[in-house]
Amino acid sequence: MADLRDQTLGFRLRREWPAYIYLVPTTLVLLFLNAYPIAYTVYISLTNFGIGRNYFTYQYIGLTNYTYALTTGATTSLTLVENSFFWAGGCVALFLLVGLGLASVMNQDLRGKTIYRTVILLPWAFPAFITILVWANMWGYEYGIINAMLGTIGIHKVDWILGGADTAWVTLFVTNVWLSFPFYTVVFLATMQAIPKDLYEAASIDGAGTLSKFGRITLPYLMPTVVFVGLMGFLFTFNNFYPIYLITNGGPGIATQIFITESYSQAFGAVGSHPAYATAAVYSVLDFLIISALTMVVIWRTDLTRNWLK
């Protein structure tokens, strides 16, 4: 009913005003539960508010915290930037790889397809919070089932989580792929199944083989979905909290720390020489700035919001 072409503001207001009524509850909720706390966070990032110290007597100290984060604390900040991008980028690359691979294998006439599909969907059906807790135990050095199984084939115990940055990242990537690959597989499979069959038939007649059919039909057809799902996955993973928080907690050191987990730890964890919650707020704001900038680029480059703004 939206009369998209209609002209004057007054005319639109006269017809479309009920929309505002419908948006009042959501707007109030978002203002109170999101906008206000965000503003509060920005304000706190400009103070020396600490959890243990300056609890009730904090003051406004201008951009000092930001200056600190970009000078003295630059090494940490840079590590967080690198880790956040490595985490999100690495995960999405793996999601796409595994998802596309499995989807194209499943997109043929195979016996037991439904069973495969159901089983592959299982990890997705379990609440992530719960399975991550168990994964954390499975990666354990002394008693983890993974090391126990490696032991049976003669491989020495690996200190996955604390042994080094490389193995810590492996645990995170494997766990997160486990959590997410079902969704990606099923989405890509659904998209592949929507490709008109006659395209493949026409290609067969033109003499195309399996690979060239994939490259010339499947992939171009999938591209919009791959781009959309990939970008959304990146934005989501960039701030995906539980896997890192519950498995490595950023360790060893801050080798796997990303903005959001560092911020949470600063707010609720150890208090150093610097005001912890203010630091947490600074990281929150930096995280927010980065993710907003990325989103702007995404919107600008891919017309992502076309559906939402139509």
Binding site: T26, L33, S263, A267, D287, S292
Partner: peptide, 17 residues
Amino acid sequence: FILLISLFPSFLLILPL
């Protein structure tokens, strides 16, 4: 507005809230 607001990591809203 709602898109921007939803980008702020929700875990970081816990303390102000």
